Computed example of a mutant assay.
Amino acid sequence: MKHEKLDYVEFAARDLDATKAFFNRVFNWTFTDYGEAYTAFDHQGIMGGFYQASLASDPSRGGALLVFYSRNIENTMSKITAAGGDIVRPVFEFPGGRRFHFTEPSGNEFAVWSDQ
């Protein structure tokens, strides 16, 4: 842990099992369950967890947007859709690269970017 640096992030999840399966299938995440209503992940650039709730992180409503990096954006997008994710903003260019936004099965929005 580094002093005064981001260390942990938490998200709501309507369906913890579907969210865990999605992140395991797409990004090979593993989880540690703490009871029936909380699961944690680590070794992903930042540690974090999902808690059972009928809410979702939505950047258009002020929620934080966490962004993954990919060396092959099209391959990552294919894995996301195959695992049940929805592309909510198709690939677009921005200064420095390209990115797209997706939601996972519990509705939390994330993005993926690439400099390739």
Rank of each mutant, 00 (worst) to 15 (best):
V9F: 10
S60G: 00
A21I: 03
E93C: 02
E93H: 06
I80N: 07
F50D: 06
F22T: 11
F41C: 05
E74W: 01
P95D: 15
G85S: 07
T19I: 11
D86M: 14
L16F: 13
A37L: 00
S57P: 00
R98L: 01
G84F: 12
A64I: 14
D42S: 09
D33P: 01
A40D: 00
F11C: 06
E10P: 06
S70D: 08
S54Q: 11
S57A: 10
Y69L: 09
G35W: 03
F11E: 07
V67W: 08
F27V: 12
G49W: 03
R98C: 00
F23R: 07
F31N: 05
L55C: 00
K20N: 07
S70R: 07
F92P: 01
Y38I: 01
Y38K: 00
S57R: 04
T39E: 01
Y38W: 02
G62R: 00
F22P: 13
F94G: 02
G85K: 10
L65N: 07
E10R: 15
T19Q: 09
F92K: 09
L6R: 05
L55S: 00
A37Q: 13
T19P: 13
V91M: 11
S60N: 04
I73D: 01
L55M: 02
G63P: 02
F31C: 03
A12W: 14
Q52R: 10
L65A: 09
F41D: 02
F11T: 09
V9H: 04
I46R: 02
